[in-house]
């Protein structure tokens, strides 16, 4: 949850190319401790063990999409209060409103710049921590 030090990030994304860019952006550039899951169901298994400070969820995923994964994570004791950011290429305002209404910390639009993503996330985290 925002307010603590941001160190561990769980990133859920099905596209292997985006996963590789995210590794570069979050690990090499950002220096975070990152675990990447390819599917929502995998995230539900990993999250309680990994105990991330922040979860980043892709919206459009096969089988279990970002919204379903968000709801399932909220049902787990371990991730009930974990901060979650949605990462989406869908820019419909109504959908974005829905993500915030659900309790998302932020909505980040794809495509992201691998060289600036980590700084952007740090800014979001700081802003949320300052507001607490």
């Amino acid at each position: 949850m925002a307010g603590t030090l941001l160190h561990k990030i769980l990133y859920v994304e099905d596209d292997p190319d985006i996963q590789e860019i995210a590794r570069l952006a979050l690990i090499d550039v950002g220096g975070f401790d990152v675990r990447i899951c390819s599917f929502g169901r995998e995230a539900l298994q990993i999250a309680p063990v990994f105990s991330p400070d922040l979860i980043i969820l892709d919206v459009m995923m096969p089988d279990m999409d970002g919204i379903s994964t968000f709801k399932a994570l909220r049902d787990l004791e371990a991730t009930k209060h974990t901060s979650i950011i949605f990462l989406t290429a869908k820019v419909q305002p109504e959908e974005v409103k829905q993500y915030y209404a659900m309790g998302a910390l932020e909505v980040i639009y794809k495509p992201f710049d691998p060289l600036t993503l980590a700084d952007f996330i740090k800014q979001i985290w700081k802003k949320a921590s300052d507001e607490r």
């Binding site: 985006i18 860019i21 794809k110």
Partner: peptide
């Protein structure tokens, strides 16, 4: 979905 991924990754 393939087109969506290609355009997204390409832009990144």
């Amino acid at each position: 979905a393939d087109l969506h991924k290609l355009s997204g990754t390409g832009t990144s």
